[in-house]
Structures are given as C-alpha cells and as structure tokens.
C-alpha cells in the first residue's frame, strides 16, 4: 500500500490530476457556500447583463445578467453528478455481465459478449442524440444514453480479467471446498480485478462529463436555465467574440475537469498495469 502511494506521489501528472479532481469534488460539495450569487443558477437580472470580469463579478455576467463564476461553480455539481451516476450505473450493468461471461464461458459468454459487441458498434454520440430526441431532451435522457454506451467497456475488461482468474489455482481450491459460483465471482474474483475497474471508471468520469457537455451544447442535454457547462457554452455563441468571458470560463471548466480525470486515470493505470506504461 505504501509502495503504491510512493509510486503515485512520484508521478507528477497523476498527482496533478488527483489534486484537481479533489478540488473539484470539494467545490461541488460546497457549491452553494462558495458561489457568490447562488440564486443566479436560475434567476436573471437584465440590468447587469454581459458585464466583463471585474471586482463585483469575477468572471463577468452572461446574457441574462447571471454571475458566470456562480454558474460555473454550481455547474460542477451537475457535471460530477452526471459522471458519478453514469459510471456507477454502467458499472452496475457491465461488471456482473462480465463476471458471468468470464466465469461460466460457453453460451453465456457468447451471448453476453455478442450483445456487448453490438453496443460497442453503435456510435455513442448518435445513440445519445437519438435517445434524447426520443425521450425529449433532459439530463436524464442524456445520462441514459451515456450509460447505454458505456457499460460495454466494463464488461470487456471484467470479462478478460475474469477469464484469466477463472483457472487460477485459488479458484479451483475454492470450488474444491464447496464455494458456489456467485460467491467465487463476487467475493473472490471481483476484489482481485478492482484496480482495472477503478482505472476504467476514472477515465469514464472524464468521458461522461465531456459527452454530457457536448449533448448540452447541442441542446440535447440539460434544458435551460440549468447551469450546465455545455449549455452555457451554447448560450454564449451569439455573443462571441465580444463577450469572450461568457464562453471561455465554462469551456475552461470542462477542459480542466476532463483533463484532470484523464491524468488521474492514466496515472492509476500505470500503477496497476506497468506493462502498459505510456512512453514519455
């Protein structure tokens, strides 16, 4: 355990990722305390519209006179909320399927893995758009679409790892002493493959935030007046390039958070699987 921390601490980019992610999580938790104008999530004030960054509004105001800093801070709650629910749900679907397919093999693995292949063949953004259109654009439909496109990644990893461990001697020892398949899969194999799942989940967080922002930008995600980053960038389009702050700060927020999750995910992967070490 200490060795892992040491290795991690020496990986500067992963550490940066971790620090940013921790900060963002803190901001999300305390959003209503940090945001200078928490009511600006929904209420507008036309009298102070499109003010440039200054002392009163550190990051300026938007076309409806709402404080952009407040909205970016409140947006972290939405972004992390989406990411966490999407990744959790995708894991809840993908991990058990992968375990079953990998452990039992035979027709079960064929069935699961072919369905997985089908889902992997569907372009993610297009499915998300279609679903959003079908269910009426909302955060929920965006999340549903993301879950539907992300679970196969968990299934594939878990399947490969379970297959590898399926024939490990300790599994045979467990079987030989009367352990049932479910117990072996969830209580013994799953803890052994937790690390690749965590790595995939971390990378998935960044992916979910990015795709949710894209959907918001296209008007297929969070509906106005939600302080969702993608939506905010979309609303700023008519005021560019004069009101540059309107688009820049929500955009920067997306960039930073996704970047941080990717750094963290890469760093974790390097620790978990040294064979995949990235070249620098």
């Amino acid at each position: 355990m200490n060795l892992i921390w040491l290795k991690f601490a020496r990986d500067r980019s992963a550490l940066t990722g971790l620090v940013i992610v921790a900060l963002v999580a803190l901001i999300a938790l305390l959003a209503y305390q940090i945001a200078p104008y928490p009511e600006d999530a929904f209420s507008s004030d036309p009298m102070r519209r499109l003010r440039p960054p200054g002392a009163e509004h550190l990051l300026g105001t938007d076309s409806l006179g709402r404080d952009i800093l407040s909205r970016v801070v409140l947006g972290t709650r939405i972004a992390l909320g989406i990411a966490l629910s999407v990744v959790t749900a995708a894991m809840a679907i993908g991990v058990p399927l992968g375990l079953v397919a990998g452990y039992f093999g035979g027709w079960r693995s064929e069935a699961v893995m072919r369905v997985t292949d089908v889902f992997l063949a569907v372009p993610q953004l297009i499915l998300a758009l279609a679903l959003a259109q079908l269910l009426r654009p909302s955060l929920e439909s965006a999340m549903a679409a993301l879950i539907l496109t992300y679970w196969p990644f968990f299934t594939r990893i878990v399947y490969a790892e379970t297959q590898r461990l399926r024939h490990a001697m300790f599994v045979e020892a467990l079987e030989g002493l009367g352990a049932r398949p479910l117990r072996i899969m969830f209580l013994h194999i799953l803890p052994n493959i937790a690390s690749p799942i965590i790595v995939r989940a971390t990378i998935g967080m960044g992916y979910a935030i990015l795709t949710a922002a894209v959907l918001g930008f296209l008007g297929m995600g969070a509906p106005p007046p939600q302080p969702e980053w993608g939506l905010m960038v979309a609303e700023s389009r008519d005021y560019l390039p004069d009101a540059w702050w309107f688009a820049t700060f929500p955009g920067l927020a997306i960039f930073l958070v996704v970047f941080a999750f990717n750094l963290l995910g890469d760093g974790l992967r390097d620790i978990v699987d040294p064979r995949l070490r990235r070249s620098r």
């Binding site: 490990a168 001697m169 300790f170 045979e172 020892a173 467990l174 079987e175 030989g176 002493l177 009367g178 352990a179 049932r180 013994h188 803890p191 052994n192």
Partner: peptide
C-alpha cells in the same frame, strides 16, 4: 454437491500451494 459433499465430507488440497490462496484476503 457444493453444500454437502465438497469441503464438508470430501476435503480438497489443490495442486500448487503458492497459487492456492486469494491474494487479496
């Protein structure tokens, strides 16, 4: 078989003791 026989009435010692334990517990 799992409930009454394996482990209970028939004990099993697997092949390679090095690999025979789950490393995480």
């Amino acid at each position: 078989m799992a409930r009454d026989i394996r482990g209970r009435r028939i004990g099993f010692i697997p092949q390679d003791p090095y690999q025979a334990f789950n490393p995480v517990f």
